[in-house]
């Protein structure tokens, strides 16, 4: 019985993904809706990865977009020089047919590089915390964006493009909604990893740090190591979100990873509630929806969204879900929502 319940969740999830992919492949849902779903997926990764640090570990990181930028640029540059004719190497380095297989690998490489960029925040976090660390994270965001701005090889402030061609290369080999597939897969993969991380005794170490760091040290938790793991995991997953984002849009420029983007992630996490993974997913979806619905109002949306946040903090300071997960609200879900 237990087994069936567990599998029911996985099967329903798989079926849902399959339906979306089928609809996309047959053209039943148009490119607009597809792009919208992809943005949702990217935002889910972006928000949940920040919730590791801001939600579970209780540090205030507000330069998350910096790591997204690292992932985006690393993955974009790699796919472009490997699979398409380009300015840097002239001819593609690898046969285009390999692009299908290597695409997710390159996205992951972008994530790994972003994880190492995360060291820029992780190491200061050993000595300092709270407001001071928050300032360091903002600084890191600026450092990364400014560095990219000044690297003429990858386009500097004009941005970097050519990822569209990479996708065409892939569809030339075999017709398939690749980006949709990979965004959804990585989004599920991210939630899965974080869920498993924070539900193990190992990962609960970061929750212990949030609640009482002195007690964590005294109870044999290597707090420095856990901070390192949490920051690297968080920034690495942000890098994955960046790589996907770049390939969905087909163009990146440093401006899109400014402090405003970091703020978007903060809004999603605080709207969700600190330390609720389900909440982060839901609020990422809602936030993407909100951005899209408010598009006609143009710049006014940056008045409406912060206003919503203020109202939310006023009337529900713990966020939509606090530190609870979905089954805590709907006990019936427990029957088939055994997410291990």
């Amino acid at each position: 019985m237990e087994k069936i319940r567990q599998n029911l969740f996985i099967v329903s999830l798989g079926a849902g993904v399959l339906v979306i992919l089928l609809l996309a492949a047959t053209g039943a849902i148009d490119l607009y809706v597809q792009t919208f779903i992809m943005f949702m997926g990217v935002n889910i990764i972006f928000a949940t990865s920040l919730s590791i640090v801001n939600g579970y570990m209780g540090e205030f990181s507000c330069g998350h977009a910096g790591f997204m930028a690292v992932g985006a640029y690393v993955a974009s540059v790699l796919t472009v020089i490997m699979f398409t004719p380009n300015k840097l190497t002239g001819v593609p380095l690898l046969p285009p047919s390999l692009s299908i297989v290597l695409f997710p690998v390159i996205i992951l490489i972008g994530g790994v590089v972003a994880a190492f960029a995360g060291l820029l925040v992780a190491i200061p976090s050993f000595k300092t915390r709270d407001d001071y660390l928050a300032i360091i994270t903002i600084a890191v965001n600026f450092i990364i964006v400014t560095l990219i701005n000044n690297m003429a090889v990858i386009g500097g402030s004009r941005g970097f493009m050519g990822m569209r061609k990479v996708i065409y290369t892939m569809t030339d080999v075999f017709q398939f909604p690749y980006m949709l597939f990979w965004v959804i897969t990585f989004a599920i993969f991210t939630v899965f990893i974080i869920r498993r991380f924070v539900s193990s005794i190992y990962g609960k170490g970061i929750i212990a740090i949030k609640q009482d760091e002195v007690a964590a040290e005294i109870m044999s938790i290597d707090t420095n190591k856990m901070k390192l793991v949490a920051f690297m995991l968080s920034s690495g997953l942000a890098g994955v979100a960046g790589g996907l984002f770049a390939h969905v849009i087909g163009y990146v420029n440093p401006g899109s990873f400014s402090i405003l983007k970091s703020t978007e992630a903060l809004v999603m996490v605080y709207m969700a509630g600190m330390g609720s993974l389900g909440g982060s997913v839901i609020s990422a979806i809602l936030f993407t929806l909100l951005l899209e619905l408010l598009r006609p109002f143009q710049i006014l949306k940056w008045v409406i969204i912060p206003l919503l946040l203020i109202l939310l903090m006023q009337f529900r300071p713990e966020g939509l879900m606090g530190d609870k997960e979905l089954p805590d609200f709907f006990p019936k879900l427990k029957k088939f929502y055994k997410f291990k």
Binding site: I207, A208, S220
Partner: peptide, 20 residues
């Protein structure tokens, strides 16, 4: 200095963090 938002069981279990 207990971890007040973690169950008593988790409070005890986390002591094995070094020996995981």
């Amino acid at each position: 200095r207990l971890w007040h938002d973690m169950t008593v069981l988790d409070n005890i279990r986390l002591s094995q963090h070094y020996h995981l």
